[in-house]
Design a protein around this nucleic acid. Structure first.
Lengths: 211, 211
DNA sequence: CTAACGTTTGTCCAATCGGTCAAAATTTGC
DNA sequence: GCAAATTTTGACCGATTGGACAAACGTTAG
């Protein structure tokens, strides 16, 4: 085993405080972006002084890097679960549902990711072209199989995955706009159920009238 | 007419230089966000010194504000064109096509807008809840009419509009990711045509297999 | 108790930021 | 061609930033 893969030995306090800092950093980074966030803001959100925070993470970038590494795993989990064994249409439907639930329950993670991509993904470009591409290609193959078997309509699997990402993450990344447009009545907690119903119909039947 | 609506008298040089600055600012802001961009960066991109730039726009925020005002008009133009007079399915299809063309031809504008919304839309919140909501509500009524007439499937018009925004703008805002995942072959110039074909099929028929 | 180790803090620093200002250079109106 | 107005520049300022550092404080094992 190489030195770089060894987990550093850490005290109980170090583990706890590092978690505290990462939680605070997620809050701050996702709201202001990397360059828009200051170490002071994160330190205050974590309830400690700036030098104290820098004792646990030596550089601002280290916090962001750690955050992004963790994020990517949980973020891609739903796609990893997309499996060949179930009914294709059901599999896709539950993938969409899971992604929408993540947008609802982890909007900060979604925004942090969106921020990074928007700025050209300077810190995670290798991951996108490597691990992410591999995973998507793999799942695209699964979907292609479903198409060949006549289980779902023939179309482009990659763009299908993009469209699922786009439509679901929209409810986290553009939440302010969604709520502003829906207004006080329909923009409340029910908006995610409305979105779920709409997306299910869209991906199942499209807009062509029945009959 | 109130004083605030009067266009300030400007010399030829002022008009030209202001345009130059706004173009440079669009480049810088869309790549780095508001707080991530510096006046020096914009000045350099515009080929002038910082004090010179500040002679035309007294504050950094003034540049951003002017940019956002202009942007919103052109950005909403496609939706304004969505008209009751044509065939509903054709109207929607060309709206999607127009939005996708904007993502292809004006990605910086899309990213600037995305950046603003992601940060909570601090500078354009009133516009979202006012002008934008009014426009969307209006077009939602048009779409509702189409549904009542049986021209398109019954579903939620607001979320339909969101899904069109999300899927099309995705190709501008997440362009880096799209190209990374598609790879060198399919991530080239043809990706927008592939996306157009896919989206047309998605919004028309969904994924349910034919027959 | 105490020495070693881990944690926290106050102070400080160089770099960068948005923005000012007066003076110099240039353009424009007559 | 010249005076007035406009444009450009270099020098500068206070505030904020990421980060360094040594000293003080706390904890823990023997």
């Amino acid at each position: 085993m190489t030195a770089s893969t060894e987990a550093p030995r850490r005290t109980r306090i170090q583990q706890e405080k590092r978690e505290l800092i990462l939680e605070a950093a997620l809050e701050v980074f996702s709201a202001n972006g990397f360059r828009g966030s200051t170490i002071d803001q994160i330190a205050e959100a974590a309830g400690m002084s700036k030098p104290n925070l820098l004792y646990y993470f030596r550089r601002k970038e280290d916090i962001h890097e750690t955050l992004m590494e963790r994020l990517l795993e949980t973020w891609l989990a739903p796609l990893r679960e997309l499996d060949d064994i179930g009914d294709p249409m059901t599999e896709l439907r539950s993938y969409i549902r899971r992604k929408l639930e993540m947008a609802r329950d982890f909007p900060r993670e979604s925004r942090l990711f969106a921020n990074e991509i928007l700025q050209g993904a300077p810190r995670i470009m290798p991951l996108l072209a490597g691990e992410l591409k591999t995973l998507v290609d793999e799942k695209a193959s699964v979907i292609k199989g479903w198409m060949r078997a006549g289980k779902i309509a023939r179309t482009d699997p990659w763009h299908l995955i993009f469209s699922i990402w786009a439509t679901t993450q929209h409810y986290a990344d553009f939440d302010v706009q969604v709520r502003a447009v829906l207004g006080p009545n329909r923009g409340g907690d029910g908006r995610f159920e409305d979105a779920a119903r709409f997306l299910e119909q869209l991906f199942l039947d499209g807009l062509k009238p029945k009959g």
